[in-house]
Write a protein that binds this DNA or RNA. Structure first.
Lengths: 220, 220
DNA sequence: AATAATTTTTAGATTTACCTAAAAATAAAA
DNA sequence: TTTTATTTTTAGGTAAATCTAAAAATTATT
């Protein structure tokens, strides 16, 4: 059994490992809002417990056991987010912090039943996939909106930025999950993207377009 | 803001204060499964924070602030229990431990919305009253089953024992919340009580009868 | 390849919630 | 009212997760 803190480290390492192969002490420290020295201490502990592989000065990687634990936490987090949005009417930009706490509730039975209660959802309110109870993810085929060409269309199925500011911005523009969009123009000047959503034209910056994930429908 | 542990102490003190006026160190230690010396330490801390009144060797009482905090935790605990039973189909004897964890989730918004989602329940799955968001309890008029006379009838509206063994026993006998019962006999030999529930006769020990709470209907 | 910059680790402290063992206060019994 | 028993507190220590400051290793730059 891991402590609350150990679980957070594993989750952080898991997420960092999605971007870089071997995860560095400083990166963990930044993410965990703590100091590198503290990270080194915890890293040793997790390595002793067989949850990560660790070579001094070389960063860490999750072991199979560590990865399973991390995925389980991710699963809980995302299921709770679905609960908060679908059942308690939270907005998609309001759920993260609460889910951050709920993910550490330890009952397996609870999560199984919650999963069932929610209808075995495949994605959380931000489009991130929810692993099943065996830790398997449904295959998803995303493309960043920024990569679409003029005329291309698709459905908004996720975001790769979870800040409240970003999500509120999308909400205001009507760019929520499930919406159909079509790229009508890409501005030469600043690379901003003109898209059509719900019969309206909206203009979004490159930065925003980078973080919207589209599943292309039709020609693919 | 209190720690998880501080919250548990406050809750424990609150529950003990329902029975005895000033709560003793040893009683807290027993309830918290810890040592009296540890309790003394924590008591000092809570007193410093203005959550309890404490005179050395004289036990403790909750301050207004401490009591409010405790009631808030009780509220969360009971609402989560309702959620687990009503929405996730847990049995009434399975919810305590999970609720024990869930009660510490800190979001006020979460609890307000949960309360609403559950339809503002007035009692948890064991019949214990749920304080409203201002900490007020609905007035309840319970009488112990053991105190009923032959011929008296009423509705099972609560239990004063929450052990899984006890609750499972009641379940097996069909003695669940909301059931109408009538006392048909009280055995001279051992004081056990013969009652009628759902057209069946069941016999329960004095010990069991002590812990079933009845709201009398009709003549009252 | 030597030096500079960065990253990571070690060493030694701190805080929280515990503990044990012994002392002090209170309550109960002779 | 002493003596005995019980309860509570103090004193001193431990483990977990953190910290700062300094040392060591690695990486980048000249």
């Amino acid at each position: 059994m891991q402590s609350y803190t150990e679980e957070n480290y594993l989750k952080t390492i898991y997420h960092l490992a999605e971007k870089t192969t071997n995860v560095q002490t400083n990166a963990i420290a930044e993410q965990m809002q703590t100091k590198p020295a503290s990270v080194t201490d915890m890293i040793k502990k997790l390595a002793d417990k067989g949850l990560i592989d660790y070579i001094k000065y070389q960063g860490v990687t999750l072991t199979e056991k560590g990865k399973n634990t991390a995925i389980d936490i991710v699963r809980k987090h995302r299921l709770w987010e679905v609960f908060l949005v679908d059942k308690l009417n939270f907005k998609w930009d309001e759920v993260h912090d609460v889910a951050e706490e709920l993910e550490h509730i330890k009952s397996i039975e609870l999560i199984e039943r919650l999963d069932e209660f929610l209808g075995f959802p495949k994605a959380d309110p931000h489009g991130d996939p929810i692993p099943d109870k065996n830790g398997r993810f449904a295959k998803t085929q995303f493309i960043k909106l920024i990569e679409l060409k003029v005329g291309d269309s698709g459905t908004i199925t996720g975001v790769s930025q979870h800040s409240s500011a970003f999500l509120k911005h999308l909400e205001k523009l009507g760019l929520t999950l499930g919406k159909q969009i079509q790229v009508s123009d890409v501005t030469d000047f600043d690379g901003s993207v003109e898209i059509q959503v719900s019969d309206k034209q909206v203009n979004i910056s490159r930065e925003v377009a980078k973080h919207i994930l589209i599943s292309s429908n039709g020609k693919n």
